[in-house]
């Protein structure tokens, strides 16, 4: 399967990974090969087959509505690359 460098750039944009044009050129055939490899799945007749939801039969447990966590600001902020006054900070966002 052939993948255009422009597609690579679009996907990288969605995934928020900066890439140069040269990198996109290099990645395009690689991704094309992998996509070509996985496309053979199209051969399988899956009509009437349900997509897998739980690999081992199990049911979703529900928690009680009790406050058991939080109030750990020091732990939450301990690894922050940047922060002040109890906040994380990021470059100013204009909405």
């Amino acid at each position: 399967m052939s993948v255009e460098p422009a597609t690579v750039k679009r996907v990288a944009g969605l995934a928020r990974i900066a890439i140069t044009d040269a990198e996109a050129e290099k990645l395009a055939p690689e991704l094309g090969n992998i996509l070509g490899f996985i496309e053979q799945l199209g051969e399988v007749d899956t009509s009437g087959v349900e997509p897998m939801t739980a690999v081992i039969p199990n049911h979703l447990r529900l928690r009680d509505d009790v406050v058991t966590d939080g109030d750990v600001r020091d732990k939450v902020l301990a690894n922050a690359p940047q922060g002040e006054h109890g906040f994380f900070t990021v470059p100013k966002v204009i909405e």
């Binding site: 006054h85 994380f88 900070t89 990021v90 470059p91 100013k92 966002v93 204009i94 909405e95």
Partner: peptide
């Protein structure tokens, strides 16, 4: 997000 606390940064409160 709070935008008016700092000239170049936005603050994040989770």
């Amino acid at each position: 997000l709070m935008h008016d606390q700092h000239p170049t940064r936005s603050y994040v409160d989770l």
